[in-house]
Design a protein around this nucleic acid. Structure first.
Length: 863
RNA sequence: GGGCGCGUAGCUCAGUGGGAGAGCGCUCGCUUCACACGCGAGAGGUCGCUGGUUCGAAACCAGCCGCGCCCACCA
């Protein structure tokens, strides 16, 4: 008899995710399961640090997949009894956040400079307090089992201390230094950016050839350039040392048109004699390549383009104040007027753009802070080589190692206001520089006033210490002792260098161990048409809308099922498949729960689970299939193969449990048989627990309706495979019955037998579990005498109502043709001496058996 | 320029040496007392092309064609 708790199941034929999810999530929070105590050792515990989303951000499909993957693992380990911590927090995201607030200001008609630094930062903090938690709320919608009570922010008080400690230590060790160096200048954000924030795009430019007259001669040296405006800052012309055409000219000078400066002709290996004229104009102030050549040859560094992207005074009266584009036009016109322009032709090449602002990078020499990476990289290379940090799939291991092997200094200063201001102070009186965790009172040398560095750190500098800074480093905290190193990190490949590599370096340097032991590189979810999913392209799909429509479980299932290590196109049908599965689980559970007999008197194991009953072959079969599913899903999750784990759960539940087992046992269930009730409830409970990490809401909701259910699924236990329940004999028996049922159904359908008709037939040979075949194929095996019109396996079908002899003949002929083809194929194979001699015995034997079966069936059909 | 990856059913993708698979879509039949977000049955593929290795190749090797991504200082 259904008790009160089950009443509401009777009429609800749809699983209503909207009604369930918020309620279940609140119940989880209340259990405290997401907030583990800082006890035990990192080996016993399981911890994951979330890739901290930007405070400006809203959840996108990348977050949703990334979050679903982490949540699956964290939930599974938690259910397996590990003390599991999923560290949550947000990133201050320097440029992104500053831009949002500046945009707000612009709408009010003011700039950040009108406000001043202090007032502006107050505005940003206000903004952060108001909107910064939006993405965290969205992670809750996804069902993410993060520790919401231990949230960190990369600019919170303790985190700032950690950043300062790291900066000061790296400086003390000589890795951090200040230098005038060519940087990627982003005129959009008016800041330097790192190499990794630059993206190259293919651009159509014009390649100009310009004649530089040689001093004391009427000959010219022709150089090729796509940026004629930078010639104003040329300080040399270079040729290849082995280039015979120019051998004699090395050491002489030419005269820079428009400017008149004497330029030495130098020899350098970087010049490609094949390109253009083989002579390269050298502009150390505005080209990274030329900068290196310039430093190698001790050339003068002239700057003609300012940080605002306009020509400076040094460009000369004629050009000062122009934009770069205007200057290019003007320079070309002037050269043409002087007859120095030899040639111009269209030229396609790749050009750096700012990943932040989208503007074309202007290489400039600028006084910036850098961090030398080569020493830090060494141990970070070693731990990956030794698989102390495993990168999955392992093709990324090589990509990582290649990049780390040629790592270059990192420009860490940014000309922004929002971020970690460098812990550096200057004394203007005596030019002393102080690098310290705390602001020194006064200059130690001259007692002068100190002025703090204006620049802030690259956002990734603070992200780089995320796994240990979030646990309270540099203090020796209980969290750090219990949860560091973490176990798992997952990202799309785009931040492998930007973030993952840097965490490994700082983890080893400061926390004394790797930050995590496994890195899993997951899919990039593309738009359905294969383009990038992005708001600006209009190709974005909002996960929150998808959750509203299909449910969080459906989205999680869909993303996990479509994901792999390749890029994949977003496929809404996969999400629908997840929703369908949730609904199927709901309805199958209704069937079971509303019809199960009272099992309160039956035996339970020490964890409160019903002991399954092995009464019949089908019971042993489903329990055996369940064990194999538990084994295979666990194995796949352990190997981060989420797509196959999801599809395996789907297949077991839908095909084996619903399509076959439930249909087979319905009569026993309706009769109120205790044994089958116990087996069903056991199987359902185990399945719900197995599926819970992937589809937490629907499984938890159903679990609450299970008779005798205690606690919540979220707290486990996670099913383990019981070898004792694996039963090969039961599996082959039921599978044979299933195959026979399907063959009979196929025959019926093709022979045009209406669904209503119960076919009369008799058993000619042995058939396992033939009662279930009778019912599921709508056939009666009681028929005694009479002419058989057809044979399907061991079943002889008799003439009965609805059997159309013509269609039957057609069906038999078709089957005969299929069999004949198979016989021919098998005989051909077995006639091949090479096959029989060289193929493994079991393969040959299997082929022989198949041939015998075909021949036997063919004989039954009358040749 | 270097590297990585992809090309399998109409669509999105599994399958990595022994008879081509899933979901969706399509066709036919079912108002079967859990579910029409359902049930049963079916159609549909020279596995990009060419050669090679092998008794046997969608899978392994080579070349070619097409597509994508990452890295890179040839102006």
């Amino acid at each position: 008899m259904p008790d009160e708790r089950l009443k509401n199941l009777e009429s609800k034929t749809r699983y209503d995710h909207g009604e369930v999810e918020q309620r279940i999530f609140d119940a989880w929070l209340e259990t405290g399961a997401f907030h583990p105590p800082a006890e035990g050792t990192p080996e016993e515990n399981f911890s994951v640090a979330i890739p901290p989303p930007n405070v400006t951000g809203a959840l996108h499909m990348g977050h949703a997949l990334n979050g679903a993957i982490q949540d699956v693992l964290v939930r599974m380990r938690r259910m397996q009894g590990r003390n599991a911590l999923w560290i949550l927090g947000t990133d201050h995201a320097g440029i992104a956040t500053q831009s949002v607030v500046e945009k707000e200001l612009r709408a009010e008609g003011i700039s950040r400079h009108d406000l001043g630094r202090e007032a502006f930062l107050e505005r940003v903090w206000e903004w952060k307090e108001r909107y910064g938690s939006r993405i965290v709320e969205q992670y809750k919608r996804l069902g993410a089992s993060c520790d919401y009570e231990r949230q960190r922010f990369t600019l919170d008080e303790g985190y700032v201390r950690a950043v300062h400690r790291v900066f000061v230590e790296l400086h003390r060790k000589g890795y951090i230094y200040r230098d005038n160096y060519i940087v990627n200048w982003d005129p959009g954000s008016r800041s330097a950016i790192s190499d990794l924030e630059v993206e190259n795009r293919e651009v159509s430019d014009t390649l100009y050839e310009i004649d530089y007259p040689l001093e004391g001669s009427d000959r010219v040296l022709t150089v090729a350039t796509v940026r004629p405006e930078t010639m104003l800052a040329d300080t040399a012309v270079a040729v290849h040392p082995d280039d015979e055409r120019y051998e004699a000219l090395v050491g002489s000078h030419c005269v820079l048109p428009l400017v008149g400066r004497r330029l030495p002709v130098i020899a350098d290996e970087h010049v490609d004699p094949e390109f253009g004229t083989g002579a390269l104009k050298i502009t150390p102030g505005h080209d990274p390549n030329d900068f290196d050549i310039g430093r190698a040859h001790g050339l003068e560094e002239i700057t003609v383009i300012g940080e605002d992207g306009r020509m400076t005074e040094a460009a000369g009266e004629a050009f000062a104040g122009m934009s770069v584009a205007e200057a290019q036009e003007a320079v070309v016109a002037a050269l043409r007027a002087e007859g120095r322009l030899r040639d111009e032709q269209p030229y396609a090449h790749s050009v750096p753009f700012s990943h932040r602002s989208g503007e074309r990078i202007e290489p400039l020499i600028s006084l910036q802070w850098f961090c030398r990476m080569d020493e830090l990289a060494k141990p970070a290379i070693a731990v990956v080589e030794r698989d102390e940090v495993r990168i999955v799939p392992d093709q990324w291991k090589r990509v990582y190692l290649d990049w780390m092997g040629k790592i270059r200094p990192w420009c860490i200063s940014r000309q922004l206001w929002w971020g970690h201001r460098l812990p550096v102070w200057y004394c203007d009186a005596c030019e002393e520089t102080y690098v310290a965790e705390q602001r020194p009172q006064r200059c130690g040398a001259c007692d002068g006033e100190l002025r703090q560095e204006e620049d802030v750190l690259d956002t990734w500098f603070s992200s780089a210490i995320w796994p240990f800074a979030t646990l309270g480093w540099p203090d020796d905290t209980a969290e750090l002792r219990a949860f560091y190193p973490t176990d798992f990190m997952t990202t799309a490949r785009e931040i492998l260098f930007l973030w993952v590599a840097r965490m490994i370096m700082t983890g080893l340097e400061f926390a004394g161990d790797v930050p995590f032991t496994d890195v899993y590189v997951h899919s990039v979810i593309q738009a359905p048409d294969g383009r990038r999913m992005s708001k600006s392209l209009g190709t974005g799909i909002d996960p929150i809308e998808t959750i509203d429509e299909h449910g969080a479980d459906a989205l999680r299932f869909g993303l996990l099922a479509m994901s792999s290590t390749q890029d994949v196109r977003y496929s809404e049908p996969k999400v629908q498949q997840g929703q369908d599965l949730a609904n199927k689980m709901w309805n199958a559970s209704r069937l079971i729960l509303l019809n199960a007999a009272d099992v309160s008197a039956l035996a339970r194991d020490e964890e409160g689970r019903l002991v399954p009953q092995l009464a019949r072959a089908e019971d042993r079969w489903i329990l055996s299939r369940l064990q194999r599913t538990i084994g295979s899903v666990s194995e796949k999750l352990d190997a981060y193969d989420f797509a196959h784990a999801a599809l395996e759960l789907y297949r077991f539940f839908w095909s084996e449990l619903c399509d076959w087992y439930l249909e087979i046992v319905k009569p026993r269930l309706y009769e109120g048989e205790e044994g089958v009730s116990a087996t069903l409830l056991y199987t359902l409970r185990e399945f719900l627990a197995l599926a819970h990490p992937l589809m937490p809401f629907v499984t938890e909701e159903i679990y609450a309706h299970l008779p005798g259910a205690e606690g919540m699924l979220v707290s486990g236990p996670f099913p383990a495979m019981h070898d004792a329940l694996v039963d090969d004999a039961a599996e082959s028996e039921i599978e044979a019955a299933i195959e026979l049922t399907r063959a009979l159904r196929r025959w019926r359908d093709l022979a045009g037998v209406p669904a209503r008709i119960v076919l009369q037939a008799r058993l000619a040979g042995a058939a396992e579990a033939h009662e279930l075949v009778e019912r599921l194929a709508r056939i009666s095996l009681d028929g005694a005498a009479g002419e058989a019109v057809a044979t399907v396996g061991p079943v002889e079908i008799l003439e009965s109502e609805g059997v159309d002899p013509a269609q039957v003949r057609e069906r038999i002929d078709e089957r005969r043709r299929t069999l004949a083809a198979e016989v021919k194929r098998a005989e051909g194979k077995l006639a091949n001496a090479g096959f029989v001699e060289r193929a493994p015995d079991e393969v040959v034997e299997a082929e022989r058996e198949k041939l015998e079966l075909y021949l036997a069936e063919l004989a039954e059909l009358g040749g």
